[in-house]
Amino acid sequence: MLLVISIFAAGCGDGGMSVSDGKRAADQSRQPVAETYWKLHNALGDQFYLTLGVGGFTDCADKNAKDSLAYIVDEPVEGKSEKQTDEQFVAMVNSRMSAVGWQLKPAGDKTQSATQDGIEVQLHLLNRTTGDGAFARLVVRGKCTNVGPAKGEIFDSYGGSKRDEYRSSSASPTPIPSFLESDETP
C-alpha cells in the first residue's frame, strides 16, 4: 500500500500537468493576446507606419510563478509626419486605440498603458531620429500562465530568432501563427 501511495504522489508532484498540457495552456494564452494585437494593429494601420508584430514567451514578473510564462506581441509604430510632435503622435495613437475600446493612460516616462481582462497594452515612446516621424513600440502582454514542465521546451522553441510573426495576408487579414511546429502541437 505504501508503494502505491509513493508512486501516486510522485506522479502528482507538479499538479499532474504534462508537457502537452503545458503546450496547450501556452497556446490558449496566445489567443487573446493575438486577437487584441490585431484589433489595435488594424485600428492604427492607415494613420501610422507599421511593419509586423513579433510574438514570443517571457518569464512572468512574479518570481513565485516559476513554471509560468506570459505571451507578448510587440510592433514598432512610426508617425507619418516628421512635423508631428511626440505629444500629437501619442494623442493620435490614443484616439485610435480608444475607438476600439483601449483607453491608454500615462504609466511612467514616455509610456502609456491599459489593462483589460488580464491583457496589458503599452505604448512606449522611443527617441526619434531627426527628420523622421515619432516612433514607439506597441506591446500587448497576456496573463501569466502555468505551463508546468513544458516551460523549457517552449523557451527552446522560441529562442533566438524563432518568434511568431504577425503578418497580414490576403488569405487571412488577422492570422495567428501556428504554435510550436512539432509532433506534440495541440
Rank of each mutant, 00 (worst) to 15 (best):
G159I: 03
P175C: 00
A114L: 06
S170H: 05
I119L: 00
G133E: 06
G55A: 04
G45H: 12
Q88F: 13
F8I: 09
F135N: 10
L123Y: 01
Q116Y: 07
S113G: 04
R24V: 02
T145D: 10
I7E: 12
S178G: 01
R30E: 01
Y158K: 02
D62T: 08
V19F: 04
N42M: 05
F89Q: 11
E87D: 14
S113Q: 07
L44K: 09
M97R: 06
M1V: 11
E181S: 05
A136W: 12
D21M: 08
A99L: 14
D109L: 15
H41Y: 13
S170M: 10
L138S: 09
V139C: 07
V77D: 07
G133Q: 04
R163C: 04
G108C: 15
K66P: 02
A99Q: 13
V140F: 04
C60D: 15
M97T: 05
I7G: 12
G133Y: 11
L44D: 05
V93P: 07
G159P: 03
A99F: 14
K80D: 11
L126T: 15
D132N: 12
G133N: 06
G131L: 11
K63Q: 05
I7S: 12
P149M: 01
A9C: 06
K110V: 10
K66F: 02
W38G: 08
T115G: 04
R96Y: 14
A134I: 06
D14K: 08
K80E: 15
F179E: 01
R96N: 12
A99G: 11
R128C: 07
S113T: 03
A25Y: 00
F57G: 03
T174N: 13
F48L: 03
S169L: 09
Y71H: 04
F57P: 00
W38N: 12
T174A: 10
I7Y: 09
L44P: 06
S182M: 00
M17G: 13
V147K: 01
Q31G: 01
P32H: 01
T185A: 15
I72M: 14
A99H: 13
F155L: 05
D183M: 09
A10E: 07
S81D: 15
S18M: 14
A114V: 11
V100I: 10
V33Q: 01
G13L: 08
D74M: 08
A150K: 00
